[in-house]
């Protein structure tokens, strides 16, 4: 098990290999279908983004509501391929990693290699357990999207497996 501090350094990413199990600690940003659409549309119009994703990791998740006193509700990964049409643009703009579940398409794999980035997978459907490694959740933008809003999470020892490494090796 490799312990990693977020934001990730490029040298650390370069050392990771597909199949490595990691524990992530630090900030990650949530984002799924609707937020990806808005972010990439804003980029295409040349607008400044409401969130700076350079050097950051995005987690494909739409959490369930938190019970009183809890930082977040159950929060497992959603299927990554739906974000594939938007991902290369975000990686080219400086995002360094994604956490999700399932396979990616070839353009995403190529963008990972081109940018020295990494794709982590975590366990779909283990949402209640995963929520225990999330310490806080702060809204960042697109709050009108409800569960699909972009939030900043602080995670601690968040379990993930390297799905695609920076050389393009793929586990799935």
């Amino acid at each position: 098990m490799i312990k990693l501090q977020l934001p990730l350094k490029k040298e650390e990413i370069a050392r990771l290999r597909a199949g490595d199990e990691v524990l992530l600690t630090g900030p990650v940003y949530t984002g799924r279908d609707a937020a990806h659409k808005r972010l990439t549309e804003a980029m295409a119009r040349g607008e400044e983004l409401p969130v700076d994703l350079r050097g950051q990791v995005i987690y494909y998740v739409g959490p369930a509501p938190a019970k009183p006193g809890q930082p977040i509700g159950p929060a497992g990964p959603t299927t990554s391929y739906r974000m594939d049409p938007y991902t290369p643009a975000l990686l080219d703009a400086g995002m360094v990693g994604m956490i999700g579940k399932g396979r990616r398409t070839e353009p995403v794999r190529e963008a990972i290699v081109r940018n020295g980035a990494v794709y982590f997978i975590t366990i779909g459907g283990a949402a209640a357990l995963i929520a225990d490694s999330i310490r806080s959740k702060e809204p960042v933008c697109y709050e009108d999207l409800g569960t699909e809003a972009v939030c900043r999470l602080e995670v601690e020892d968040f379990y993930a497996i390297v799905g695609i490494d920076s050389l393009g090796n793929s586990l799935l």
Binding site: V61, G62, P63, A64, K67, G73, P74, A75, G76, T78, I123, G124, G125, A126, A127, A128, L129, I130, A131, D132, T147, Y159
Partner: peptide, 23 residues
Amino acid sequence: VLDMIVRNDRLAEERMVAMCQDT
């Protein structure tokens, strides 16, 4: 992975929270 799923599902029942965020 299967062990995590089992632990997750037991935890969900114990706390009465959703076992998966996609309800």
